[in-house]
Amino acid sequence: MGFRDRVKFHIDFGSIEGYVGNHLRFFISLAIGLIVFVGIIALAVFFVAVRGAEQTMVPDVRNMELTEALLELQVKELYPRLQLRFSHAASDRGRVLEQNPEAGTIVKAGRRIRLVVSQGVVINNVENYVGRNIDEVRMDLQALFTTAVPLFSLKEPFMYQFSPEVPGTILQQSPEPGTTISGPTVLELVISRGLEREMIKIPGLTGLTIGESLDLIGKSGVRFSFSERPPRTGEKPETVLSQTPAAGTVTEADTELSLVVSSPAVLNEGEVFDIFSYTLPVNPYPLSVSLEAMLPSGERRPLITVNHPGGKFTVPYRLPAGSILILSMLNRELYREEISLPIDRI
């Protein structure tokens, strides 16, 4: 190889060596950069993972129904740990009695909150029901036992006897108060139906407006029935035209007072005048019955509240079409009816 050839080879070899070195440094720098980048990402993920949960305030859920309490905790991202126990009042059943941590405590989201929930009351002996009203006792037992096989059941029909005690008052019971309960028990009750021949004085309603007569009937508690006819010459519309028995008559409490009322002379557009009629369950003594109207506007208008023994129940009304009549006994709805215009007025 000549001198020129050796010089040329040396120059070419040096160029190749420089080219390879530059690329090797580039790849090393790239690898280091990737390692640093991955390290930064790993640190970020680590700190996000170990960062504490957000803090929240524990709400006050005591005395709430369990479902309502669970919703409150869910809003705060807290979780319940339930504990059941008996309490002293039947009305506590299903309510939160205690909580831990206390309301207002600042905790991390996801914390478990211990809730003590009432199972109701535990009964070992028969209570004394004598002197109490049968309807109150019935509602208490229904609230106390919601299972398919209640601890107590009432033997019906009840035994009734005349007594000076208020009608509906429990006079006797079996088993006796204090009897130890060993399983499902049937209660036999003797209930007052009031005086054998209670007498009342018939109030004077003739000449009163329909509203005034309904108000007076509600106060006197007399048994009643309504019928209507158009007013004649000299008669006022929407008033009581006649009554039987006459005012001042002393008669037995279950005597029916028959009333004839006059219909309106003119009705406003969209109004209806009629007599509501419904046959109530017959009771051995009068129970509280009420009739109210829910107007199309949503307003509720009471028409009458009276103690009624049952049977036919009639009440005149003048109301806008679309109103709903709601009949209740002992504050429990029995029946509702929507008022509509007669076909000849549509």
Rank of each mutant, 00 (worst) to 15 (best):
198 E>R: 07
158 F>N: 01
144 L>T: 10
153 S>K: 09
134 I>F: 12
173 Q>D: 04
71 L>M: 09
151 L>N: 06
104 G>A: 13
218 G>N: 10
266 V>D: 11
11 I>F: 09
307 N>L: 13
57 M>G: 01
213 S>L: 06
130 V>L: 08
330 L>Q: 14
206 T>W: 09
4 R>D: 12
316 P>F: 05
35 I>T: 11
345 R>P: 00
145 F>W: 11
136 E>M: 14
178 G>S: 12
183 G>E: 10
317 Y>R: 05
161 Q>L: 14
96 V>S: 02
226 F>A: 01
96 V>K: 01
22 N>K: 13
72 E>V: 07
67 T>A: 14
155 K>Q: 11
336 R>C: 12
44 A>N: 11
123 I>C: 03
4 R>H: 12
143 A>G: 11
191 I>N: 00
77 E>Q: 10
286 P>I: 08
255 T>A: 10
108 K>V: 15
5 D>P: 02
258 S>N: 13
198 E>Q: 11
312 K>E: 14
342 P>G: 02
214 L>C: 05
46 F>V: 09
45 V>D: 06
100 N>C: 12
26 F>P: 00
67 T>H: 07
166 V>M: 13
324 I>Y: 00
109 A>M: 15
238 E>K: 05
325 L>F: 05
65 E>M: 04
127 E>K: 07
263 S>C: 06
283 N>E: 15
53 A>F: 10
155 K>Y: 11
141 L>F: 09
261 V>I: 15
268 N>C: 07
174 S>P: 02
179 T>M: 07
322 G>Y: 08
170 I>K: 00
18 G>T: 08
296 P>E: 09
